[in-house]
Structure formats: C-alpha cells, structure tokens
Amino acid sequence: MEPFLAVVVGGLFAAGLYMILRRSIVKLLIGLVLLSNAANLVIFVTAGLHRGVPPLVPEGASAPLHTVADPLPQALVLTAIVISFGVLAFAMALVHRTHAMVKTDDINDLTSTDS
C-alpha cells in the first residue's frame, strides 16, 4: 500500500506544482488544493499504514499487546484538513474578488504592485 500511495503523492505534487505554475489564477487555486491534499497524504503514510488494528489497550494491560495503528497522524491530518479548508475557502474568495476587480484571469497582468 505504501508504494502505491507514494506514487499518488508524487503525482499530486507534480500536478499541483504544474497548476501553480500556469498563468490562470483559477488553476493556481486548484494547484494549491492539490498540494495541500498531497501534504495530508504524506503525513498519513509516513507513520506507517496498519489495517484492522485499532489502538485499543486490553483490559488489565497498560500497553497494547501488538503493533497498532497510530492514531496521532490521523489527528494531525484532521487538523490539517480543517486548516486547509479554511485557508482555501479564503483563497477562493480572494481569487473571486481579484477577478471581479482586475477583470482578468492572467497572473501576468497582476503587476501593478511590482513596478
């Protein structure tokens, strides 16, 4: 499972970076979405994937007996998803507003602050 997910993460990064480097601000946003999802998957995979072993401690024991799935990365991913959801919602509003104001979708036209 890990090699497969590694390829998926790589693919998401490649696609995300490609989209960020395009000139359209909408594609820029899509690129950011892809990148943040790729990051979440990385966290999910790095701690190791274990199937069907919930982190439960049997009665009377003070530690789990076998290898268990680590719940912490999932908590991290959950936090990261919530944060990226908020940030991307804001970014979307920003892109919308920028488009309404500048009347263009081309990043190369957004240079009035650079001169």
Binding site: I25, A38, A39, I43, T46, V87, A91, T98
Partner: peptide, 23 residues
C-alpha cells in the same frame, strides 16, 4: 488584492512544505 494573492500563494506553499516536514 494583487499583493494578497501573491502573499497567500507563497505562504500556503510554505505551510505545505512545513506540514510535509512535520509528517
């Protein structure tokens, strides 16, 4: 708007890199 778009993009990218490193 123009400034914020650049600021948001690069800082989001930086956060993504940070998150991967933490992972």
């Amino acid at each position: 708007m123009e400034g914020a778009l650049k600021y948001v993009t690069l800082n989001l990218f930086s956060s993504t890199v940070f998150l991967i490193a933490v992972g």
